[in-house]
C-alpha cells in the first residue's frame, strides 16, 4: 500500500493508539476491553486518548479476570463484533491460555469455517528493564507454535499503525505483540529509531510480509521486535568492520514470510537469527530450518543463533543484560559467520 509522504513523527505507542482510534471511528463493531485501558489509557499507552473520544461503553475497563474478559471477547467476536482485548503483559497468559488457544484459536476450525472469530489480542512483551521473569518474556514462539492465531510483532511506528489496522480488519484472531522497549515510552530507555514518520491517514501493512530493514550483501540477520533495532545498530558496527549485513524484520511469525528468508539467504549465503525469546524449540530453529529447506546449497557457513538462553529472565541488571540478545552479541555472531 502506498501512502502520502509525511514529516509527522510518532512513537510506536502513539501509532498503535492512532490505528485503533481510526478504525473505531469508522467501524462501530470495534471496541476495546482490558485492564486499565480506560482512564489510564493502557499501561503502555496502547489505548491513549480513546476513552475521551469513544466513552466507557466502547473502551471498557475490566476486572482482573483475563479468562472472563478474553473469553467474552471471543463470544462478542462470534456474535458480530470486532473486539480488541488487552492482556497487559504476555507473561500473564498462564491465567487465561485456555480461552486463547483452546477456544479463540480453534472455533473457526471446529466449525468447518462457518464461524469467524475476529479478535485482536494486544499484549506487551519483552525485557531489558529489570522487571524479572514474570514481566519480561516475549513468548511469541509459543503463540506461533499453536495453530489458529496470527502473531504480529511490529518494531517500528509505521508498521505498528498499519499492522494494527490490518489486524482489526482481519477475520481471524490476531495476537498483536508490542515490545515495551520499542514503544517510545517516556519512562523507558528507547532506541533512537522509536520515533519515525507515520502517515496521518489510515493504511494497512499486510500481515505475513517481512521487511528488509537494511540491505546488505555479506550476512543475513533475521529477527523481530526490539531486536530489529539491535540488529540495525549491529549492522552499523559491522559496516565499519567491512561486513555488509542485511537485516530482515519478520514483522509477523504467523504467517511467516519464509520466502523472504530464503531470498535473503540466497543473496548473502550466511545467516544469523536473533531472537529475544528462549532459544530452544523456538523461532531461531524455525528460521534456520526454513533456510536449510529452501536454500541449503547456498549456505556457505552453518547458521548461528543469538537468543535468550533457556533460563527464566533474571532480575539483576547485569544478569539480564548478559541473558538477552545484545548488539555486541549480534556483531560477534555476524562477524564470525561472515568470516567463516
Amino acid at each position: 500500500m502506498t501512502t502520502a509522504a509525511t514529516d509527522r513523527k510518532l512513537t510506536m505507542q502513539k501509532a498503535i493508539a492512532e490505528g485503533i482510534f481510526q478504525e473505531m471511528d469508522v467501524d462501530p463493531s470495534v471496541f476495546v476491553m482490558g485492564e486499565d485501558v480506560g482512564v489510564y489509557g493502557g499501561i503502555f499507552g496502547s489505548t491513549e486518548g480513546l476513552l475521551a473520544k469513544f466513552g466507557p461503553d466502547r473502551i471498557i475497563d475490566t476486572p482482573i479476570s483475563e479468562t472472563g474478559f478474553i473469553g467474552a471477547a471471543v463470544g462478542a467476536a462470534i456474535n458480530g463484533m470486532r473486539p480488541i482485548v488487552e492482556l497487559m503483559f504476555v507473561d500473564f497468559f498462564g491465567v487465561c491460555m485456555d480461552q486463547i488457544y483452546n477456544n479463540m484459536a480453534k472455533i473457526h476450525y471446529f466449525s468447518g469455517g462457518n464461524i469467524k472469530v475476529p479478535v485482536v489480542l494486544t499484549t506487551a512483551v519483552g525485557g531489558g528493564y529489570s522487571d524479572a521473569g514474570q514481566h519480561s518474556q516475549t513468548l511469541w514462539g509459543m503463540f506461533a507454535h499453536l495453530p489458529g492465531m496470527k502473531v504480529v510483532v511490529p518494531s517500528s511506528a509505521y508498521d505498528a499503525k498499519g499492522l494494527m489496522i490490518s489486524a482489526i480488519r482481519d477475520d481471524n484472531p490476531v495476537v498483536y505483540m508490542f515490545h515495551k522497549g520499542a514503544l517510545g515510552l517516556g519512562w523507558m530507555v528507547n532506541n533512537p529509531r522509536a520515533t519515525e514518520p507515520v502517515p496521518e491517514e489510515p493504511y494497512e501493512v499486510p500481515i505475513g510480509e517481512a521487511r528488509i530493514a537494511r540491505e546488505g550483501t555479506d550476512v543475513t540477520v533475521v529477527t523481530i521486535g526490539l531486536s530489529v533495532h539491535k540488529a540495525l545498530d549491529a549492522a552499523e558496527t559491522l559496516e565499519s568492520q567491512g561486513v555488509s549485513a542485511e537485516v530482515l524484520d519478520l514483522r509477523s511469525l504467523v504467517p511467516l514470510d519464509r520466502q523472504a528468508v530464503i531470498n535473503s539467504v540466497k543473496k548473502t549465503q550466511r545467516l544469523v537469527v536473533v531472537d529475544e525469546d528462549y532459544q530452544s524449540f523456538g523461532m531461531t530453529g524455525e528460521i534456520i530450518t526454513t533456510a536449510v529447506e529452501g536454500a541449503f546449497e547456498y549456505l556457505d557457513a552453518p547458521p548461528v543463533r543469538v537468543a535468550t538462553p533457556d533460563v527464566p529472565i533474571p532480575y539483576s541488571h547485569g544478569l539480564e543484560e548478559w541473558t538477552l540478545p545484545s548488539t555486541e552479541r549480534i556483531v560477534a555472531a555476524a562477524a564470525g559467520v561472515a568470516s567463516s
Binding site: 472472563g68 474478559f69 467474552a72 463470544g75 467476536a77 456474535n79 458480530g80
Partner: peptide, 27 residues
C-alpha cells in the same frame, strides 16, 4: 457449532461461560 440457531459447546469445563458473557455484550 451452529450459526442459526446460535449454538456452541466445548470440551473444556467452564470454557463456554465467558463466551456467553461476550455474546450478551454483543447483543
Amino acid at each position: 457449532f451452529s450459526v442459526e440457531p446460535n449454538f456452541g459447546c466445548s470440551g473444556i469445563i467452564g470454557e463456554g461461560m465467558p463466551v456467553a458473557v461476550g455474546a450478551a455484550l454483543a447483543f
